[in-house]
Design a protein around this nucleic acid. Sequence first.
DNA 1: GGTCGTTTTGAAAGCGCGTGCAAAAATGCG
DNA 2: CGCATTTTTGCACGCGCTTTCAAAACGACC
Lengths: 328, 328
Amino acid sequence: MPMRVTADDVARAAGVSRAMVSRAFTPGASISVRKREHVHRVAQTLGYRPNLIARGLTGQRTGLIAVVVGEISRPYEAWLLEHLVKALSAHGYQPLLLAVEGANLTEMLDHALAYQVDGAIVAAGSVSREIADRCRASGAPLVLIGRVLDQGGIDAVCCDNREGMRLLAARLAGQGRRRLAWLGGTPDTFSDQERDQALEAALLDHGLTLTARRRGDFSQASGVEEGGWLLDAGLDLDAILCANDAMALGVLDAAAQRGIHVPDALAVTGFDDIPAAALGRCALTTIRNPVNETAQAALRLLNARLQTPGLAAQVVRVDVALIERISA
Amino acid sequence: MPMRVTADDVARAAGVSRAMVSRAFTPGASISVRKREHVHRVAQTLGYRPNLIARGLTGQRTGLIAVVVGEISRPYEAWLLEHLVKALSAHGYQPLLLAVEGANLTEMLDHALAYQVDGAIVAAGSVSREIADRCRASGAPLVLIGRVLDQGGIDAVCCDNREGMRLLAARLAGQGRRRLAWLGGTPDTFSDQERDQALEAALLDHGLTLTARRRGDFSQASGVEEGGWLLDAGLDLDAILCANDAMALGVLDAAAQRGIHVPDALAVTGFDDIPAAALGRCALTTIRNPVNETAQAALRLLNARLQTPGLAAQVVRVDVALIERISA
DNA sequence: GGTCGTTTTGAAAGCGCGTGCAAAAATGCG
DNA sequence: CGCATTTTTGCACGCGCTTTCAAAACGACC
């Protein structure tokens, strides 16, 4: 039955009041240097650490940030999560992880809000205005990643999908590819919609249109499946553009299985530039989605709003880049 | 300046005492059905939810569980994390995510303990006895995943590495492979050590020894690299056994780049059976490391110890299985 | 030494909630 | 209807900490 060491214990042992112990652990509090050191020393020997739960109850900040992410086992999500966690912990925050599967995002966020999180970073699901309002009502700033709410009013950071698609379209057009297919991801997904639209627009600029369109679920397996379908449909395709890298890698597999040479007979492009994209016998030509900068930007937004609640909402578009490898 | 709705507000609005509000939200508390419903209704309209931080302060349980994992972007880690999160949330826990990079595990766990976590699940780094004791002193049970402390005394769940290696050795020996190489992972890793030892032992049973051994860092990139080294060394290898799937996939790439046919000219085996192992033009023969059961077992252990602190520590070995695909 | 302006300190009031305890209300029974 | 039980309720305290506020200690300066 282990009893925690409390500030009272330290106070008694150090011969000071509990308030002093609190101040000793509060940077910038009014306390003499001598006493602070003394208290620290005593605390050390007793093995005392301020209870952050109790601290969170009084102060306005718990240091907890809700991080909502989709299926973690997807390469992009995992990659992003890794950077988010690093960024959070660098800023002294602690991530409360919520993995959303389906429509229970509201419920999960509510649960997180009950933990008095200082804020939330949402990189999955679709955030309704209602949810956003509820967060604001709880005093927890919300930052979206990879999706922006068109009604505005919510901080978001998202890569420049339009520019990415333009770059890909230009490259393929420049290579003289004419019969192009689009392999989209899960519908109702912001990334899917924006990339899809952007592609159509960009192709138009080159006088091209899609020969075929097909839809997967952003997974490599669906890339194999739908890619296979496209290749078997007798469409005589030049290129397959995929809504993300995972599916593109799947398409690459499908092509290899059929003995179709990439990039000579077929170009394949991805989006995100996940680490695995550079590997494999046929490295992927793709668009770099700068995960690290995205995470940093998200935290910057969060911090800014935490310090100045009245700030106007802001949408940060992080720059993308064409990564030329060999698949296209 | 949004003011949270507190139990007092609900009490006032419902014309009852604050204690009643508390009881209305405490399952099994002494309160009449009528009143509970009434309070719930009022709470609903006010948008009240019990503050879990405050609740955690009084009660012994915060519902927070520290989850320590290594590099999340690695497929296996991500996969495991996904299942852990699911399992935790199914049991009403909330994961506090700690990504350890380097030796600061102690520090991170200390920080988590300051949040009064109910327990910790550690799937990364090496846990010293000192750390374990500190956790126990804070009343937070520790459960290890994929590593067991040989001094014992700590709950752990880990797949049966020995049996896995036996199965692989038997298969390769049965195929008449004779010149085998081992591609190990990061040293000082429990998985690496146990799998390595187990392989040597298993091979001995078939009168075989390793022709070569090499070491990566569990990443696919290192698989490409070290696999390439092995293939270029003129060792005339029959088979390359890898300490995990990611490296095996890398080796597969390396072989493909060199035009070496798998499995005819070379067998490649992995370990874990991550989702990506089944994909690709050359599906991986590997050992299934049942992540889901692992996560479930970890939670069972955690719950058991939470309910009965005095319980003897237990090591659960989850069963593995040989997954026969085409790479070996 | 005394006065005034500065730190430095301790007492006490919360933060939002759970819960033991005793009072109040409801119920059962004769 | 009266009494003994049982259920339901409210009060008040405490969880571990932060933070006013006023008192105490300090130091400088005349």
